[in-house]
Computed example of a mutant assay.
Amino acid sequence: MTSFRSQTEIVSAGFRMLPVDWILENYIAILNNTSTAPIMRWLWNSLFIATTHTFLVVIVVSVTAYGYSRMKFKHRDTLFFILMGISMFPGVVNLIPSYKIIESFGWVNSPLAMIIPGLAGMGNIFLVRQFMKGIPKEFDESARIDGASDFVIYSRIIVPMIKPVLIVAALFSFTGSWNDFLWPVIVYSDVEKMPITAGLLLLQDIYGNYRMIGQLMGSAFLAIIPTMLLFLFAQKYFVQSMNLNSGVKG
């Protein structure tokens, strides 16, 4: 609501839920500032990074979960729980070594710095693995009798059944990538290449004074619109993912 108020109303009026006079000047000023605060460029950067990251996460997570739930190999469960235990360490512990790795690859100020790390998140793998374990093994056995390989079973039988949980994993990945703040602040210094979260920090210096509060609030509101719409249209899949047999018909 603050982003639709005039600066005079923001600093002088008392608390009001709705603006007295609805204005769009704050958004016009935001969109016209393409030099020091190119917010549309930042939004595009975040959209590209989050979408690419999410697409790759769905592939990596589904393949990994298939291996840990449907295939048999030595020390499978032991390895899985070791990786789960390692994932319990706070992410901040890995910031310095992660940055050194990114720097050695030449990915600083590159979208790859946010797209590649975190593709094999154990939280998503655990979620998808548990969903797969609820699918009867008879599907696999019937397919093998007909000569299907592991890839055919995975791509044509398992993936269609686990669509709801993959959508949930994709939703978690997209919002996590879009809202990530600390990591992009560390790996980006080029204003043109920043995602929206790193850009919002820069905006606090540009708009963060008593004369531009409306523009700062407008920028923050633009940043939350994509994830807000995503949750609005994908919320039904959260309910489906809670049922481990939701992908099984009959």
Results as ranks from 00 to 15, higher is better:
residue 25 E to H: 12
residue 153 I to W: 00
residue 107 W to F: 07
residue 70 R to F: 08
residue 165 V to N: 04
residue 179 N to P: 07
residue 153 I to T: 07
residue 188 Y to C: 04
residue 14 G to W: 03
residue 105 F to R: 12
residue 131 F to I: 07
residue 134 G to W: 09
residue 111 P to V: 02
residue 159 V to F: 05
residue 246 S to C: 10
residue 159 V to G: 00
residue 211 R to Q: 15
residue 39 I to M: 14
residue 110 S to I: 02
residue 32 N to C: 06
residue 120 A to P: 01
residue 200 L to P: 04
residue 89 F to P: 05
residue 54 T to M: 00
residue 15 F to T: 07
residue 40 M to Y: 13
residue 15 F to L: 01
residue 144 R to F: 04
residue 156 R to A: 07
residue 118 G to Q: 01
residue 38 P to F: 14
residue 49 I to D: 00
residue 197 T to K: 08
residue 1 M to A: 14
residue 12 S to Y: 14
residue 56 L to Q: 01
residue 26 N to K: 08
residue 168 V to Y: 05
residue 95 L to M: 08
residue 243 N to K: 14
residue 180 D to I: 00
residue 248 V to D: 08
residue 206 I to K: 08
residue 93 V to N: 09
residue 86 I to C: 12
residue 146 D to F: 13
residue 137 K to W: 14
residue 161 M to S: 09
residue 6 S to Y: 03
residue 178 W to D: 00
residue 18 L to Q: 08
residue 240 Q to Y: 11
residue 232 L to M: 15
residue 143 A to V: 05
residue 48 F to P: 00
residue 81 F to C: 12
residue 12 S to G: 11
residue 151 F to L: 12
residue 74 K to T: 09
residue 4 F to A: 05
residue 81 F to V: 03
residue 54 T to H: 02
residue 234 A to L: 06
residue 28 I to P: 09
residue 205 D to T: 05
residue 195 P to K: 06
residue 207 Y to N: 03
residue 17 M to I: 12
residue 125 I to C: 08
residue 243 N to S: 13
residue 77 D to L: 15
residue 67 G to L: 02
residue 156 R to V: 03
residue 49 I to K: 06
